Computed example of a mutant assay.
Amino acid sequence: MSAPASIAFLGFGEAARAFHATLAEANPQLRFSAHDIKLGGAGDAAMRAAMDAAGVRICERPEDLGGAEWIVSAVTADQSLIAARSVLGVLTADTVLVDINSVSPGRKQQTAAEVEARGAAYLDLAVMAPVHPRGHRTPTGAAGHAMDRLAPALDALGFDWTRAGEAPGRATAVKMVRSLFVKGLEALTVECLLAAERSDCLPEILGSLARSYPGLGWPEIAAYQFERTLVHGHRRAAEVEEVAVSYDDLGLTGALAAAIAQVQAAMGRAGESVTPGGDLAALIAEVNAARRGE
């Protein structure tokens, strides 16, 4: 399969905008369109402004994405299957649904089955690092029954991808398993340091952690973890809820991920009133004040 001439985004949030920016820069001939659930509802004006600024054709309904060769699904984890079902009616044998959502292998397998039943191709694309500044060149894992056919197109578009397997869900499995550690380390860091500040022993805890784990780079790692959870906590919570499902499906302890999701969600709520940056101790105190006010 050659590179597509048209790409549609189902969901136009941070990931979709990052992918669009670098795809458009590297492939000026591409045509873009987008639909987002915010159109016609809360956030309508801001979403339209973002789409206008990006130069993508605004699609009022999901089915208006029909005709695009690739539809990139980039929605919140809880909406991934709903979003895919919203475009099933416009899928054809010439359509590829590229699912970059952070969901469980089981969810991607279910989505793939419904997409492929329409004769379209399905690509499980797992984004393995922050999408800024590399956009679509962010390292990804790819899996799907159409991998042999899609591989040349991924290369032609400039994706940085690694084949994870032929079965849908194989790429997201790598992300879900890894995510317990990555998002869990964030949750451990912020919750430990919030407790340290409340217990009036923050300097002692930071010093102890720096001595015990010098390779992590204290206190810089702590500032980074606070920034990531305050800015992205809501989205991370939705992802880690899918991690919990993934671990439960494996017969392991999904409850651990569920607790991490609670911390991420609490930090996301705190981020609505707290701006990361500045002195770490002052930031921790500010977050504690916000968390106490819940």
Score class of each variant (00 low, 15 high):
A153F: 01
A5F: 05
A143G: 00
F19P: 03
A146W: 01
L280D: 08
H132E: 04
I205D: 05
V287D: 13
R236E: 14
V182T: 11
A93D: 07
P214Q: 03
M147V: 12
A171N: 07
I58V: 11
S208K: 02
G141V: 05
G158R: 00
S246E: 06
A266F: 05
L10H: 02
G251F: 14
A223F: 13
A173R: 03
A15R: 04
A210S: 07
S246N: 10
D64E: 02
V96P: 05
P62F: 07
M267K: 04
P276N: 03
Y213P: 09
Q262P: 15
G67N: 09
V96F: 03
V274F: 07
A113Q: 10
S179L: 15
E114W: 07
R178V: 13
F226H: 11
L216E: 02
E186S: 04
Q79C: 05
N288G: 15
Q262G: 14
E114K: 07
N288W: 13
L185E: 08
L194R: 06
I100V: 15
R107E: 09
E186Y: 02
A112C: 13
L81P: 03
F19L: 08
F181G: 06
G66I: 10
I82A: 14
G233V: 00
A46E: 08
E239K: 08
N27C: 11
C192D: 00
G141I: 07
P133R: 07
L185Y: 12
L180C: 11
A74R: 10
A146F: 07
H145V: 09
D160F: 13
M147R: 09
I100L: 13
A18M: 06
L81M: 08
E227N: 03
E242S: 09
T189C: 15
G169H: 13
L188R: 12
L209N: 08
F159P: 06
K38D: 06
A15C: 02
A222V: 05
E294G: 12
T172M: 15
A117D: 05
I221C: 13
P4T: 15
K175T: 14
S179Q: 14
G254N: 10
V243A: 11
S199Q: 15
P130Q: 05
P4W: 10
A34V: 09
S33H: 14
P105Y: 04
R57N: 02
G144L: 02
P152H: 12
D279W: 07
E191T: 14
A49K: 09
A196W: 12
H20L: 12
K108P: 06
R198N: 04
A50W: 03
V87S: 05
R31Q: 09
L23Q: 08
A21G: 03
R61W: 04
A112K: 15
L65F: 09
A50R: 03
V177H: 13
S73Y: 00
T275W: 01
